[in-house]
């Protein structure tokens, strides 16, 4: 992934928004980052897509209002994920019970979708998605957030530490512990096991 070119383009669009309130440039930024931001928020909210979209809208609106303060000291996407994480935390503190109820309803929906679908590849994708969500749910909040930011937001450990506001060592520890737990939870997806079974 050519990060440096993407980052330079991001910064050029940010400068246009800052200097001329260029809505087209902001639309480009949204188009480029909305997919990942929504996916990260979707994982953080336990797979609730509608809620994730709502939080993602809030994230981008806050980013738009705060863009004048962005000085380019970090990558734009790191800065954006920090806003997204703060939006999630605020929502989580306000209504964690509501979130839990929504999460359960989503799990029920996912089960229905999985059993109702008939495409093999699609079914496998949904199964992985569901298994992954269940595995992530078994992690502690900190482990889950570390894994989501390092893998789903595609951030380095130091960037994830910056977004989460944790020391780098804490992020690395949580990632290691989370991966150990995920290996146990998702061992059925280990391709070497499937090979051994066939042999």
């Amino acid at each position: 992934m050519p990060t440096s070119v993407d980052d330079a383009q991001d910064l050029a669009w940010v400068r246009l928004v800052q200097s001329h309130d260029d809505r087209t440039a902001f639309a480009h930024l949204v188009c480029r980052h909305q997919g990942r931001v929504r996916a990260v928020l979707c994982r953080l909210t336990g797979g609730h897509q509608a809620l994730a979209d709502e939080l993602a809208q809030d994230t981008f609106l806050r980013a738009y209002h705060a863009l004048a303060e962005f000085r380019g000291e970090s990558r734009f996407r790191t800065w954006l994920y920090r806003i997204a994480y703060n939006v999630f935390l605020q929502h989580h503190r306000r209504g964690s019970q509501r979130l839990e109820a929504l999460r359960q309803s989503v799990e029920e929906d996912d089960d229905e979708t999985l059993h109702g679908s008939d495409g093999g590849a699609q079914s496998a994708g949904l199964e992985l998605n569901l298994d992954l969500q269940h595995a992530l749910d078994q992690l502690s909040d900190d482990e889950r957030e570390a894994i989501i930011h390092c893998y789903f937001a595609d951030l380095s450990h130091s960037e994830a530490a910056e977004v989460l506001g944790w020391p780098l060592g804490t992020v690395k520890t949580h990632v290691l512990r989370a991966k150990a737990k995920l290996k146990t939870s998702l061992h059925a997806w280990n391709p070497s096991l499937a090979t051994e079974d066939i042999a």
């Binding site: 929504r38 996916a39 994708g125 992985l128």
Partner: peptide, 8 residues
């Protein structure tokens, strides 16, 4: 793999 396919 999951992250790439999760992108909306």
């Amino acid at each position: 793999h999951a992250a790439e396919h999760a992108e909306m």
